[in-house]
Design a binder for these strands. Structure first.
Lengths: 250, 250
DNA sequence: TATTTCTTTGCATGTTTGTGCCTCCTTGTT
DNA sequence: AACAAGGAGGCACAAACATGCAAAGAAATA
Protein backbone atom coordinates (compact mmCIF):
# COMPACT_ATOMS: atom_id res chain seq x y z
CA UNK A 1 0.00 0.00 0.00
CA UNK A 2 1.30 3.40 -0.97
CA UNK A 3 2.07 5.92 1.73
CA UNK A 4 -0.26 8.55 0.31
CA UNK A 5 -2.99 6.00 -0.01
CA UNK A 6 -2.57 4.97 3.59
CA UNK A 7 -2.64 8.54 4.80
CA UNK A 8 -5.79 9.20 2.82
CA UNK A 9 -7.34 6.16 4.42
CA UNK A 10 -6.42 7.52 7.82
CA UNK A 11 -8.06 10.83 6.99
CA UNK A 12 -11.20 9.04 5.88
CA UNK A 13 -11.31 6.96 9.04
CA UNK A 14 -10.78 9.99 11.26
CA UNK A 15 -13.52 11.88 9.50
CA UNK A 16 -15.87 8.99 9.81
CA UNK A 17 -15.14 7.91 13.34
CA UNK A 18 -14.16 11.25 14.86
CA UNK A 19 -11.33 9.73 16.83
CA UNK A 20 -8.77 7.06 16.21
CA UNK A 21 -6.34 5.12 18.35
CA UNK A 22 -2.89 4.69 16.90
CA UNK A 23 -2.65 1.05 17.89
CA UNK A 24 -5.99 0.29 16.23
CA UNK A 25 -4.88 1.94 13.03
CA UNK A 26 -1.71 -0.09 13.17
CA UNK A 27 -3.72 -3.30 13.16
CA UNK A 28 -6.26 -2.20 10.59
CA UNK A 29 -3.69 -0.94 8.13
CA UNK A 30 -1.12 -3.63 8.88
CA UNK A 31 1.84 -1.35 9.51
CA UNK A 32 3.87 -0.69 12.63
CA UNK A 33 2.73 1.81 15.22
CA UNK A 34 5.80 3.88 14.47
CA UNK A 35 4.64 4.38 10.92
CA UNK A 36 1.19 5.34 12.09
CA UNK A 37 2.68 7.84 14.50
CA UNK A 38 4.74 9.35 11.74
CA UNK A 39 1.64 9.55 9.54
CA UNK A 40 -0.40 11.20 12.26
CA UNK A 41 2.37 13.65 12.94
CA UNK A 42 2.59 14.53 9.28
CA UNK A 43 -1.15 14.86 8.84
CA UNK A 44 -1.32 17.02 11.92
CA UNK A 45 1.36 19.36 10.67
CA UNK A 46 -0.63 19.61 7.44
CA UNK A 47 -3.52 20.61 9.64
CA UNK A 48 -5.79 17.84 8.43
CA UNK A 49 -6.27 16.17 11.79
CA UNK A 50 -5.60 16.95 15.42
CA UNK A 51 -2.95 14.80 17.00
CA UNK A 52 -3.52 13.79 20.61
CA UNK A 53 -1.93 11.34 22.97
CA UNK A 54 -2.53 7.77 21.79
CA UNK A 55 -4.30 8.79 18.63
CA UNK A 56 -5.88 11.64 16.74
CA UNK A 57 -9.11 13.57 16.51
CA UNK A 58 -11.09 14.94 13.67
CA UNK A 59 -10.55 18.58 13.05
CA UNK A 60 -12.88 21.38 12.14
CA UNK A 61 -16.64 21.53 12.12
CA UNK A 62 -18.77 18.51 11.31
CA UNK A 63 -19.74 18.34 7.67
CA UNK A 64 -23.25 18.37 6.40
CA UNK A 65 -23.27 14.69 5.83
CA UNK A 66 -22.37 14.21 9.42
CA UNK A 67 -25.63 13.31 11.09
CA UNK A 68 -26.19 10.31 8.87
CA UNK A 69 -22.66 9.14 9.45
CA UNK A 70 -22.99 9.32 13.16
CA UNK A 71 -25.74 6.77 12.96
CA UNK A 72 -23.56 4.47 10.99
CA UNK A 73 -20.50 4.69 13.16
CA UNK A 74 -21.01 3.84 16.75
CA UNK A 75 -18.30 3.52 19.31
CA UNK A 76 -19.89 0.62 21.11
CA UNK A 77 -20.01 -1.42 17.94
CA UNK A 78 -16.41 -0.60 17.22
CA UNK A 79 -15.42 -1.88 20.65
CA UNK A 80 -17.33 -5.10 20.15
CA UNK A 81 -15.63 -5.53 16.82
CA UNK A 82 -12.21 -5.08 18.36
CA UNK A 83 -12.90 -7.91 20.75
CA UNK A 84 -14.17 -10.12 17.98
CA UNK A 85 -10.91 -9.65 16.10
CA UNK A 86 -9.19 -11.90 18.63
CA UNK A 87 -11.06 -14.87 17.24
CA UNK A 88 -10.13 -14.26 13.63
CA UNK A 89 -6.92 -15.61 12.20
CA UNK A 90 -5.21 -16.01 8.87
CA UNK A 91 -6.44 -18.71 6.52
CA UNK A 92 -9.86 -19.05 8.06
CA UNK A 93 -13.04 -19.38 6.05
CA UNK A 94 -15.34 -16.74 7.49
CA UNK A 95 -19.05 -16.56 6.87
CA UNK A 96 -20.38 -13.08 7.53
CA UNK A 97 -23.95 -11.93 7.12
CA UNK A 98 -25.49 -8.48 7.28
CA UNK A 99 -25.93 -5.82 9.91
CA UNK A 100 -24.10 -2.64 10.81
CA UNK A 101 -22.09 -4.27 13.57
CA UNK A 102 -20.74 -6.85 11.17
CA UNK A 103 -19.97 -4.12 8.69
CA UNK A 104 -18.01 -2.28 11.32
CA UNK A 105 -16.07 -5.44 12.07
CA UNK A 106 -15.15 -5.85 8.43
CA UNK A 107 -13.87 -2.29 8.34
CA UNK A 108 -11.59 -3.13 11.22
CA UNK A 109 -10.16 -6.30 9.75
CA UNK A 110 -6.42 -5.95 9.17
CA UNK A 111 -5.67 -5.17 5.54
CA UNK A 112 -3.15 -7.99 5.51
CA UNK A 113 -5.59 -10.64 6.72
CA UNK A 114 -5.47 -13.74 4.58
CA UNK A 115 -8.39 -16.06 4.03
CA UNK A 116 -11.84 -16.44 2.57
CA UNK A 117 -15.00 -14.53 3.31
CA UNK A 118 -18.39 -15.85 2.28
CA UNK A 119 -21.23 -13.35 2.50
CA UNK A 120 -24.74 -12.71 1.27
CA UNK A 121 -24.46 -9.00 1.97
CA UNK A 122 -23.34 -6.64 -0.80
CA UNK A 123 -22.10 -3.94 1.62
CA UNK A 124 -19.90 -6.48 3.37
CA UNK A 125 -18.47 -7.61 0.05
CA UNK A 126 -17.75 -4.07 -1.03
CA UNK A 127 -16.07 -3.23 2.25
CA UNK A 128 -13.53 -5.94 1.50
CA UNK A 129 -12.43 -4.45 -1.80
CA UNK A 130 -9.09 -3.33 -0.38
CA UNK A 131 -8.24 -6.57 1.36
CA UNK A 132 -6.04 -8.09 -1.28
CA UNK A 133 -5.41 -11.34 0.56
CA UNK A 134 -9.06 -12.15 1.08
CA UNK A 135 -11.08 -14.06 -1.48
CA UNK A 136 -14.67 -12.92 -1.34
CA UNK A 137 -17.42 -15.32 -2.30
CA UNK A 138 -20.82 -13.76 -2.69
CA UNK A 139 -23.94 -15.77 -2.18
CA UNK A 140 -26.63 -14.62 -4.55
CA UNK A 141 -30.35 -14.44 -4.10
CA UNK A 142 -33.12 -11.90 -3.89
CA UNK A 143 -31.90 -8.70 -2.29
CA UNK A 144 -33.82 -7.84 0.84
CA UNK A 145 -33.22 -4.12 0.90
CA UNK A 146 -34.12 -3.44 4.47
CA UNK A 147 -31.12 -5.36 5.75
CA UNK A 148 -29.16 -5.46 2.49
CA UNK A 149 -28.75 -9.21 2.38
CA UNK A 150 -29.57 -11.76 -0.27
CA UNK A 151 -32.24 -14.24 0.71
CA UNK A 152 -34.42 -16.91 -0.82
CA UNK A 153 -34.14 -20.35 -2.27
CA UNK A 154 -31.06 -19.55 -4.36
CA UNK A 155 -29.25 -18.33 -1.28
CA UNK A 156 -30.24 -21.44 0.63
CA UNK A 157 -29.06 -23.77 -2.07
CA UNK A 158 -25.76 -22.01 -2.58
CA UNK A 159 -25.08 -22.27 1.13
CA UNK A 160 -25.78 -26.00 1.00
CA UNK A 161 -22.63 -26.48 -1.03
CA UNK A 162 -20.34 -24.67 1.36
CA UNK A 163 -18.81 -24.78 4.79
CA UNK A 164 -17.03 -22.29 7.04
CA UNK A 165 -14.80 -22.18 10.08
CA UNK A 166 -16.50 -19.25 11.75
CA UNK A 167 -19.90 -17.72 11.18
CA UNK A 168 -20.21 -14.13 12.34
CA UNK A 169 -23.93 -13.79 12.82
CA UNK A 170 -25.73 -10.50 12.85
CA UNK A 171 -28.17 -10.68 15.74
CA UNK A 172 -31.36 -8.66 16.17
CA UNK A 173 -32.83 -10.29 19.25
CA UNK A 174 -31.42 -12.64 21.79
CA UNK A 175 -32.82 -14.12 24.99
CA UNK A 176 -31.03 -16.72 27.11
CA UNK A 177 -34.05 -19.01 27.12
CA UNK A 178 -35.96 -18.27 23.94
CA UNK A 179 -32.82 -18.06 21.85
CA UNK A 180 -31.91 -15.89 18.90
CA UNK A 181 -34.83 -14.48 16.95
CA UNK A 182 -35.63 -12.04 14.18
CA UNK A 183 -38.76 -10.46 12.73
CA UNK A 184 -38.47 -12.01 9.25
CA UNK A 185 -38.80 -15.73 8.71
CA UNK A 186 -36.85 -15.64 5.46
CA UNK A 187 -33.84 -14.27 7.29
CA UNK A 188 -34.24 -16.72 10.15
CA UNK A 189 -34.11 -19.59 7.71
CA UNK A 190 -30.89 -18.41 6.09
CA UNK A 191 -29.21 -17.67 9.40
CA UNK A 192 -30.11 -21.11 10.67
CA UNK A 193 -28.60 -22.63 7.56
CA UNK A 194 -25.49 -20.56 7.95
CA UNK A 195 -25.02 -21.69 11.53
CA UNK A 196 -25.40 -25.29 10.46
CA UNK A 197 -22.57 -25.18 7.93
CA UNK A 198 -20.10 -23.48 10.28
CA UNK A 199 -17.81 -25.01 12.85
CA UNK A 200 -18.09 -22.08 15.23
CA UNK A 201 -20.54 -19.21 15.56
CA UNK A 202 -19.76 -15.75 16.89
CA UNK A 203 -22.21 -12.96 17.61
CA UNK A 204 -21.71 -9.39 18.74
CA UNK A 205 -24.68 -7.86 20.50
CA UNK A 206 -25.26 -4.45 22.00
CA UNK A 207 -27.14 -4.25 25.27
CA UNK A 208 -30.33 -2.99 23.65
CA UNK A 209 -30.73 -6.34 21.98
CA UNK A 210 -30.11 -8.46 25.03
CA UNK A 211 -33.22 -10.12 26.41
CA UNK A 212 -35.41 -9.17 23.52
CA UNK A 213 -37.48 -11.49 21.40
CA UNK A 214 -39.28 -11.44 18.09
CA UNK A 215 -41.40 -13.76 16.03
CA UNK A 216 -39.06 -16.05 14.23
CA UNK A 217 -36.55 -18.21 16.03
CA UNK A 218 -33.17 -18.67 14.41
CA UNK A 219 -31.69 -21.08 16.92
CA UNK A 220 -31.19 -21.60 20.64
CA UNK A 221 -28.43 -19.55 22.22
CA UNK A 222 -26.31 -22.60 22.84
CA UNK A 223 -25.59 -22.76 19.12
CA UNK A 224 -23.29 -19.82 19.73
CA UNK A 225 -19.63 -20.47 20.41
CA UNK A 226 -18.75 -16.88 21.31
CA UNK A 227 -21.04 -14.11 22.47
CA UNK A 228 -19.49 -10.66 22.60
CA UNK A 229 -21.31 -8.01 24.59
CA UNK A 230 -20.88 -4.79 26.47
CA UNK A 231 -20.82 -4.92 30.25
CA UNK A 232 -23.54 -7.20 31.48
CA UNK A 233 -24.76 -8.13 34.89
CA UNK A 234 -22.88 -11.13 36.36
CA UNK A 235 -26.17 -13.02 36.70
CA UNK A 236 -26.85 -12.75 33.00
CA UNK A 237 -23.29 -13.68 32.27
CA UNK A 238 -23.64 -16.86 34.29
CA UNK A 239 -26.88 -17.63 32.50
CA UNK A 240 -25.10 -17.78 29.18
CA UNK A 241 -21.95 -19.44 30.35
CA UNK A 242 -24.01 -22.20 31.87
CA UNK A 243 -24.88 -23.13 28.29
CA UNK A 244 -21.24 -23.52 27.32
CA UNK A 245 -20.98 -20.21 25.51
CA UNK A 246 -17.82 -18.17 25.84
CA UNK A 247 -19.14 -14.77 26.84
CA UNK A 248 -16.80 -11.83 26.36
CA UNK A 249 -17.54 -8.47 27.89
CA UNK A 250 -15.41 -5.57 29.08
CA UNK B 1 6.06 -0.38 -28.35
CA UNK B 2 6.47 3.33 -28.92
CA UNK B 3 7.08 5.71 -26.11
CA UNK B 4 3.98 7.75 -26.78
CA UNK B 5 1.86 4.66 -26.98
CA UNK B 6 3.26 3.39 -23.70
CA UNK B 7 2.59 6.64 -21.93
CA UNK B 8 -0.98 6.65 -23.12
CA UNK B 9 -1.33 3.14 -21.76
CA UNK B 10 0.00 4.33 -18.44
CA UNK B 11 -2.53 7.13 -18.35
CA UNK B 12 -5.31 4.69 -19.09
CA UNK B 13 -4.15 2.33 -16.39
CA UNK B 14 -3.92 5.11 -13.83
CA UNK B 15 -7.39 6.33 -14.67
CA UNK B 16 -8.81 2.86 -14.50
CA UNK B 17 -7.07 1.67 -11.36
CA UNK B 18 -6.60 4.95 -9.53
CA UNK B 19 -3.08 4.05 -8.50
CA UNK B 20 -0.10 2.37 -10.04
CA UNK B 21 3.14 1.01 -8.70
CA UNK B 22 6.19 1.64 -10.82
CA UNK B 23 7.54 -1.88 -10.49
CA UNK B 24 4.19 -3.34 -11.56
CA UNK B 25 4.09 -1.15 -14.64
CA UNK B 26 7.59 -2.23 -15.46
CA UNK B 27 6.50 -5.84 -15.55
CA UNK B 28 3.20 -5.23 -17.30
CA UNK B 29 4.72 -3.11 -20.04
CA UNK B 30 7.98 -5.04 -20.27
CA UNK B 31 10.34 -2.11 -19.91
CA UNK B 32 12.83 -1.26 -17.22
CA UNK B 33 11.78 0.55 -14.09
CA UNK B 34 13.97 3.44 -15.11
CA UNK B 35 11.91 3.98 -18.19
CA UNK B 36 8.71 3.85 -16.19
CA UNK B 37 10.11 6.36 -13.77
CA UNK B 38 11.01 8.66 -16.62
CA UNK B 39 7.51 8.28 -18.03
CA UNK B 40 5.86 9.00 -14.71
CA UNK B 41 8.05 12.02 -14.19
CA UNK B 42 7.15 13.32 -17.61
CA UNK B 43 3.44 12.69 -17.20
CA UNK B 44 3.52 14.36 -13.83
CA UNK B 45 5.16 17.47 -15.19
CA UNK B 46 2.45 17.52 -17.84
CA UNK B 47 0.04 17.43 -14.97
CA UNK B 48 -1.74 14.30 -16.14
CA UNK B 49 -0.97 12.19 -13.08
CA UNK B 50 0.32 12.71 -9.58
CA UNK B 51 3.71 11.23 -9.00
CA UNK B 52 4.39 9.74 -5.57
CA UNK B 53 7.14 7.64 -4.12
CA UNK B 54 7.03 4.15 -5.62
CA UNK B 55 4.27 4.91 -8.07
CA UNK B 56 1.66 7.41 -9.12
CA UNK B 57 -1.90 8.38 -8.34
CA UNK B 58 -4.77 9.45 -10.45
CA UNK B 59 -5.17 13.18 -10.50
CA UNK B 60 -8.15 15.40 -10.20
CA UNK B 61 -10.47 15.02 -7.27
CA UNK B 62 -8.43 14.23 -4.19
CA UNK B 63 -10.39 11.23 -3.06
CA UNK B 64 -12.13 12.79 -0.16
CA UNK B 65 -14.95 10.82 1.23
CA UNK B 66 -18.15 11.80 -0.51
CA UNK B 67 -16.32 13.41 -3.38
CA UNK B 68 -15.81 9.85 -4.54
CA UNK B 69 -19.33 10.12 -5.80
CA UNK B 70 -18.42 13.21 -7.71
CA UNK B 71 -15.45 11.38 -9.10
CA UNK B 72 -17.60 8.65 -10.50
CA UNK B 73 -20.02 11.22 -11.81
CA UNK B 74 -19.00 12.35 -15.20
CA UNK B 75 -21.03 14.47 -17.49
CA UNK B 76 -20.45 12.38 -20.56
CA UNK B 77 -21.53 9.20 -18.84
CA UNK B 78 -24.54 10.94 -17.44
CA UNK B 79 -25.56 12.02 -20.93
CA UNK B 80 -25.18 8.52 -22.27
CA UNK B 81 -27.26 7.24 -19.39
CA UNK B 82 -30.00 9.72 -20.12
CA UNK B 83 -30.26 8.43 -23.65
CA UNK B 84 -30.32 4.85 -22.46
CA UNK B 85 -33.28 5.64 -20.22
CA UNK B 86 -35.48 5.83 -23.33
CA UNK B 87 -35.18 2.10 -23.78
CA UNK B 88 -36.14 1.19 -20.24
CA UNK B 89 -39.77 0.76 -19.31
CA UNK B 90 -41.85 -0.46 -16.42
CA UNK B 91 -42.11 -4.20 -15.85
CA UNK B 92 -38.99 -5.11 -17.76
CA UNK B 93 -36.48 -7.64 -16.56
CA UNK B 94 -33.15 -5.84 -16.78
CA UNK B 95 -29.78 -7.52 -16.59
CA UNK B 96 -27.06 -5.07 -15.61
CA UNK B 97 -23.41 -5.85 -15.10
CA UNK B 98 -20.59 -3.73 -13.74
CA UNK B 99 -18.79 -0.57 -14.75
CA UNK B 100 -19.02 3.06 -13.75
CA UNK B 101 -21.19 3.97 -16.70
CA UNK B 102 -23.75 1.36 -15.74
CA UNK B 103 -23.60 2.57 -12.15
CA UNK B 104 -24.32 6.07 -13.35
CA UNK B 105 -27.30 4.79 -15.29
CA UNK B 106 -28.70 3.06 -12.23
CA UNK B 107 -28.42 6.27 -10.25
CA UNK B 108 -30.49 7.98 -12.89
CA UNK B 109 -33.25 5.38 -13.01
CA UNK B 110 -36.58 6.89 -11.92
CA UNK B 111 -37.35 6.00 -8.31
CA UNK B 112 -40.80 4.95 -9.41
CA UNK B 113 -39.56 2.47 -12.00
CA UNK B 114 -41.20 -0.90 -11.65
CA UNK B 115 -39.55 -4.14 -12.65
CA UNK B 116 -36.74 -6.58 -11.97
CA UNK B 117 -33.00 -6.04 -12.05
CA UNK B 118 -30.61 -8.96 -12.21
CA UNK B 119 -26.99 -8.09 -11.51
CA UNK B 120 -23.68 -9.65 -10.55
CA UNK B 121 -22.32 -6.32 -9.28
CA UNK B 122 -22.67 -5.42 -5.59
CA UNK B 123 -22.39 -1.65 -6.22
CA UNK B 124 -25.25 -1.84 -8.72
CA UNK B 125 -27.36 -3.77 -6.24
CA UNK B 126 -26.68 -1.27 -3.48
CA UNK B 127 -27.48 1.66 -5.72
CA UNK B 128 -30.98 0.25 -6.10
CA UNK B 129 -31.75 0.19 -2.39
CA UNK B 130 -34.16 3.13 -2.67
CA UNK B 131 -36.06 1.85 -5.68
CA UNK B 132 -38.98 0.30 -3.89
CA UNK B 133 -40.70 -1.03 -6.98
CA UNK B 134 -37.66 -2.89 -8.26
CA UNK B 135 -36.91 -6.42 -7.25
CA UNK B 136 -33.17 -6.97 -7.22
CA UNK B 137 -31.78 -10.41 -7.89
CA UNK B 138 -28.10 -10.81 -7.18
CA UNK B 139 -26.05 -13.39 -8.97
CA UNK B 140 -23.41 -14.80 -6.66
CA UNK B 141 -19.91 -15.95 -7.41
CA UNK B 142 -16.34 -15.05 -6.65
CA UNK B 143 -15.95 -11.31 -6.32
CA UNK B 144 -13.50 -9.87 -8.82
CA UNK B 145 -12.51 -6.75 -6.96
CA UNK B 146 -11.01 -4.80 -9.81
CA UNK B 147 -14.35 -4.44 -11.54
CA UNK B 148 -16.51 -5.34 -8.56
CA UNK B 149 -18.46 -8.07 -10.25
CA UNK B 150 -19.09 -11.67 -9.31
CA UNK B 151 -17.59 -14.19 -11.69
CA UNK B 152 -16.89 -17.88 -11.92
CA UNK B 153 -18.73 -21.11 -12.36
CA UNK B 154 -21.40 -20.28 -9.78
CA UNK B 155 -22.18 -17.08 -11.62
CA UNK B 156 -22.38 -18.91 -14.91
CA UNK B 157 -24.70 -21.58 -13.59
CA UNK B 158 -26.99 -19.11 -11.87
CA UNK B 159 -27.32 -17.21 -15.13
CA UNK B 160 -28.24 -20.40 -16.94
CA UNK B 161 -31.53 -20.51 -15.05
CA UNK B 162 -32.59 -16.99 -15.95
CA UNK B 163 -33.62 -14.76 -18.80
CA UNK B 164 -33.96 -11.02 -19.29
CA UNK B 165 -35.60 -8.54 -21.62
CA UNK B 166 -32.65 -6.15 -21.82
CA UNK B 167 -29.01 -6.64 -20.98
CA UNK B 168 -27.12 -3.44 -20.26
CA UNK B 169 -23.57 -4.46 -20.96
CA UNK B 170 -20.57 -2.65 -19.58
CA UNK B 171 -18.12 -2.35 -22.45
CA UNK B 172 -14.37 -1.87 -22.21
CA UNK B 173 -13.37 -2.21 -25.83
CA UNK B 174 -15.34 -2.21 -29.05
CA UNK B 175 -14.33 -2.33 -32.66
CA UNK B 176 -16.78 -2.56 -35.57
CA UNK B 177 -15.00 -5.54 -37.08
CA UNK B 178 -13.32 -7.32 -34.16
CA UNK B 179 -16.31 -6.91 -31.89
CA UNK B 180 -16.56 -6.33 -28.17
CA UNK B 181 -13.53 -7.38 -26.16
CA UNK B 182 -12.13 -7.20 -22.63
CA UNK B 183 -8.80 -7.98 -21.00
CA UNK B 184 -10.07 -10.79 -18.70
CA UNK B 185 -11.38 -14.04 -20.11
CA UNK B 186 -13.47 -14.79 -17.03
CA UNK B 187 -15.40 -11.60 -17.57
CA UNK B 188 -15.72 -12.23 -21.28
CA UNK B 189 -17.33 -15.60 -20.57
CA UNK B 190 -19.92 -14.17 -18.20
CA UNK B 191 -20.77 -11.28 -20.50
CA UNK B 192 -21.24 -13.67 -23.40
CA UNK B 193 -23.58 -15.76 -21.29
CA UNK B 194 -25.48 -12.67 -20.23
CA UNK B 195 -25.96 -11.61 -23.82
CA UNK B 196 -27.23 -15.06 -24.71
CA UNK B 197 -30.03 -15.06 -22.15
CA UNK B 198 -31.30 -11.60 -23.05
CA UNK B 199 -33.73 -10.58 -25.75
CA UNK B 200 -32.01 -7.26 -26.40
CA UNK B 201 -28.57 -5.90 -25.58
CA UNK B 202 -27.71 -2.27 -24.93
CA UNK B 203 -24.25 -0.77 -24.47
CA UNK B 204 -23.12 2.73 -23.62
CA UNK B 205 -19.61 3.57 -24.75
CA UNK B 206 -17.56 6.69 -24.43
CA UNK B 207 -15.40 7.70 -27.37
CA UNK B 208 -12.16 6.59 -25.74
CA UNK B 209 -13.37 3.00 -25.98
CA UNK B 210 -14.46 3.14 -29.61
CA UNK B 211 -12.19 1.28 -31.97
CA UNK B 212 -10.10 -0.29 -29.26
CA UNK B 213 -9.41 -3.98 -28.82
CA UNK B 214 -8.11 -6.28 -26.14
CA UNK B 215 -7.37 -9.94 -25.79
CA UNK B 216 -10.66 -11.64 -25.09
CA UNK B 217 -13.60 -11.40 -27.40
CA UNK B 218 -17.04 -11.17 -25.81
CA UNK B 219 -19.10 -11.21 -28.98
CA UNK B 220 -19.35 -9.57 -32.40
CA UNK B 221 -20.84 -6.10 -32.41
CA UNK B 222 -23.96 -7.27 -34.21
CA UNK B 223 -25.09 -8.93 -30.99
CA UNK B 224 -25.88 -5.43 -29.80
CA UNK B 225 -29.37 -4.11 -30.26
CA UNK B 226 -28.59 -0.54 -29.19
CA UNK B 227 -25.25 1.22 -29.11
CA UNK B 228 -25.22 4.56 -27.34
CA UNK B 229 -22.26 6.84 -27.98
CA UNK B 230 -21.14 10.41 -28.00
CA UNK B 231 -20.86 12.20 -31.32
CA UNK B 232 -19.18 9.96 -33.83
CA UNK B 233 -18.14 10.43 -37.39
CA UNK B 234 -20.90 9.57 -39.88
CA UNK B 235 -18.68 6.94 -41.48
CA UNK B 236 -18.33 5.07 -38.21
CA UNK B 237 -22.03 5.46 -37.63
CA UNK B 238 -22.78 3.82 -40.93
CA UNK B 239 -20.34 1.06 -40.18
CA UNK B 240 -22.35 0.02 -37.16
CA UNK B 241 -25.77 0.60 -38.62
CA UNK B 242 -24.89 -1.61 -41.54
CA UNK B 243 -24.84 -4.45 -39.01
CA UNK B 244 -28.38 -3.75 -37.92
CA UNK B 245 -27.47 -1.96 -34.73
CA UNK B 246 -29.45 1.06 -33.63
CA UNK B 247 -26.76 3.64 -33.01
CA UNK B 248 -27.71 6.60 -30.88
CA UNK B 249 -25.48 9.64 -30.62
CA UNK B 250 -26.12 13.33 -29.99
C1' DT C 1 22.70 3.29 -49.54
C1' DA C 2 25.68 5.17 -46.21
C1' DT C 3 26.43 8.28 -42.60
C1' DT C 4 25.34 11.46 -39.25
C1' DT C 5 22.36 13.13 -35.65
C1' DC C 6 19.02 12.67 -32.24
C1' DT C 7 16.07 9.95 -29.23
C1' DT C 8 15.19 6.30 -26.33
C1' DT C 9 16.50 2.71 -23.38
C1' DG C 10 19.04 -0.08 -19.93
C1' DC C 11 22.69 -0.31 -16.71
C1' DA C 12 25.95 1.25 -12.98
C1' DT C 13 26.64 4.71 -9.46
C1' DG C 14 25.68 6.94 -5.34
C1' DT C 15 21.64 9.18 -2.84
C1' DT C 16 17.10 9.53 -0.71
C1' DT C 17 12.90 7.71 1.26
C1' DG C 18 10.05 4.69 3.89
C1' DT C 19 9.75 1.52 7.41
C1' DG C 20 10.68 -1.34 11.53
C1' DC C 21 13.24 -1.88 15.65
C1' DC C 22 15.57 -0.16 19.67
C1' DT C 23 16.48 2.85 23.53
C1' DC C 24 15.36 6.36 26.32
C1' DC C 25 12.07 9.85 27.60
C1' DT C 26 7.18 11.67 28.44
C1' DT C 27 2.44 11.35 29.56
C1' DG C 28 -1.57 9.72 31.72
C1' DT C 29 -3.50 6.73 35.28
C1' DT C 30 -3.91 4.56 39.33
C1' DA D 1 4.79 8.22 43.64
C1' DA D 2 4.80 4.25 40.75
C1' DC D 3 3.81 2.16 36.64
C1' DA D 4 2.32 1.11 32.12
C1' DA D 5 1.34 2.94 27.71
C1' DG D 6 2.63 6.13 24.25
C1' DG D 7 6.07 8.88 21.90
C1' DA D 8 10.71 10.94 20.14
C1' DG D 9 15.04 10.23 18.02
C1' DG D 10 18.62 7.40 16.21
C1' DC D 11 20.04 3.39 13.58
C1' DA D 12 19.74 -0.02 9.90
C1' DC D 13 18.21 -1.99 5.82
C1' DA D 14 15.80 -2.44 1.71
C1' DA D 15 13.37 -0.35 -1.87
C1' DA D 16 12.94 3.48 -4.86
C1' DC D 17 15.18 7.29 -7.07
C1' DA D 18 18.36 10.62 -9.90
C1' DT D 19 22.17 10.98 -12.73
C1' DG D 20 25.60 10.01 -16.09
C1' DC D 21 26.89 7.10 -19.72
C1' DA D 22 26.96 3.96 -23.46
C1' DA D 23 24.57 1.06 -26.70
C1' DA D 24 20.71 0.50 -29.73
C1' DG D 25 17.32 2.41 -32.75
C1' DA D 26 15.04 5.81 -35.44
C1' DA D 27 15.10 9.80 -38.37
C1' DA D 28 17.19 12.77 -41.28
C1' DT D 29 20.63 14.06 -44.50
C1' DA D 30 24.11 13.41 -47.83
Amino acid sequence: MLKQERQQTIIDIVNEEHKVIASDLSRRLSVSEDTIRRDLKELDSQGVIKRVHSGALRKGPPVQDFSTRREIFNETKSNLANKALHYIEDDMVLLIDGGTTNLQLVHQLPLSLKGTVITNSPPIAMALSNHNEIEVIMIGGTLFKQSMVNLGIDTYEALSTMRADLYIMGVYNIDPEIGISIPRSSEALIKRKMASISTEVLAMVTNDKLDTVSNHIVCPTDHLTYLITENVHPDIKRLYEKQGITLIDS
